[in-house]
Design a protein around this nucleic acid. Structure first.
Length: 112
DNA sequence: CACTTGACAACAA
DNA sequence: CTTGTTGCCAAGT
């Protein structure tokens, strides 16, 4: 083995945080990447794309900084993401989370 | 190895 | 609203 240590896939870190998102809340790509202090918001989206084909990650709880369901187009069906969020008590309007600032879950801020 | 793409962020105009 | 720019990093071609 050339690598003495097993380098943790960046994606794994992302999955971990995403799965920590509590019920009825949502996190933004930027907040996650900020919490990891690594990579960038793009990597989070990339990880989700892969994770959705390999892991069970509540990707529906991950939205962009405006609270828009930007990733809904990558779901099996675009409506699925909204239905899942509404099923958790989150209101969606025009593909955006209503009262986003209230549902927003920032790991580095609320994960005490 | 070079270039492009991507579920983004943030700002400028 | 759109378009452009910069930063960021992995994967695909």
């Amino acid at each position: 083995m050339k690598s003495p240590q097993k380098e943790i896939p960046y994606f794994e870190s992302v999955y971990d945080v995403v799965q920590l998102i509590p019920f009825g809340r949502a996190a933004s790509y930027g907040d996650i990447s900020n919490y990891l202090s690594l990579g960038s918001a793009r990597m989070v989206g990339w990880a989700m794309n892969k994770s959705f084909s390999t892991k069970h990650v509540p990707a529906h709880r991950v939205v962009n900084r405006k609270g828009e369901l930007s990733g809904r187009t990558h779901f099996p069906t675009p409506d699925m993401m909204q239905e899942l969020l509404e099923g958790e008590g989150i209101k969606i309007e025009d593909h955006r989370i209503v009262d986003w600032e209230n549902v927003r879950w920032d790991p580095s801020r609320e994960l005490l």
